[in-house]
């Protein structure tokens, strides 16, 4: 068995907060976020990149944090599920849509879905059904049967669209 490589120093920003940490090169990003930074909202469902529960945004792109090493995130800006709601507790419109459409049951896979949907709606504010299914196809949910999640994505897109037009209307 080879020796464990020496820990390295990494710097990264998570949900707007700067962190500096020593990590073993073999530490996965998921384990670092959960154990090192106590951001336990990111969940680990399969540890082999299929279920999508551990998705986080790295420089704006959703990645599976179980398949990425923490040292690979050196210098990156990350967002986890803890970064979605506002600091006063107000839920993000995607989260609100999940409540209203019953888009979750046990809630364990939900952080991964929220991150994947956030990435989708940032790049494509009114996605087609096909685009939604393409993104959700990479996320597993064992409770809901997905129908309510589909409804939540459509509803979230509408909410975000309405918020954008409201803020774009002069005097509104």
């Amino acid at each position: 068995m080879p020796e464990v490589a020496a820990a390295r120093k990494i710097r990264l920003k998570v949900n707007g907060v700067a962190h500096e940490a020593l990590v073993e090169p073999r530490t996965t990003l998921a384990d670092f976020l959960r154990g090192g930074l106590a951001l336990t909202g990111t969940h680990v469902g399969c540890e082999h990149g299929v279920c999508g529960a551990c998705a986080v945004l790295v420089d704006g792109t959703a990645v599976r944090s179980c398949l990425m090493l923490a040292v690979q995130a050196d210098g990156a800006e990350l967002m986890t599920v803890e970064g979605l709601a506002e600091s006063d507790g107000k839920l993000h419109p995607i989260q609100e849509a999940f409540v209203e459409e019953h888009g979750l049951q046990c809630g364990f896979c939900t952080p991964g879905f929220l991150i994947a949907i956030y990435e989708l709606l940032e790049s494509d504010p009114s996605p087609s059904e096909e685009a939604i299914r393409d993104v959700l196809g990479g996320q597993m949910c064992r409770c809901t049967g997905y129908q309510s999640i589909l409804r939540a994505v459509h509803s979230a897109a509408a909410k975000l669209g309405a918020a954008r037009s409201a803020s774009a209307t002069p005097g509104a």
Binding site: T40, V81, E82, A85, G107
Partner: peptide, 18 residues
């Protein structure tokens, strides 16, 4: 609407590995 949801959606529910 379910009262369980807000904590689950914000990653605050304490699952066993947490």
């Amino acid at each position: 609407q379910r009262r369980e949801d807000a904590a689950l959606l914000t990653g605050r529910t304490e699952f066993i590995d947490d």
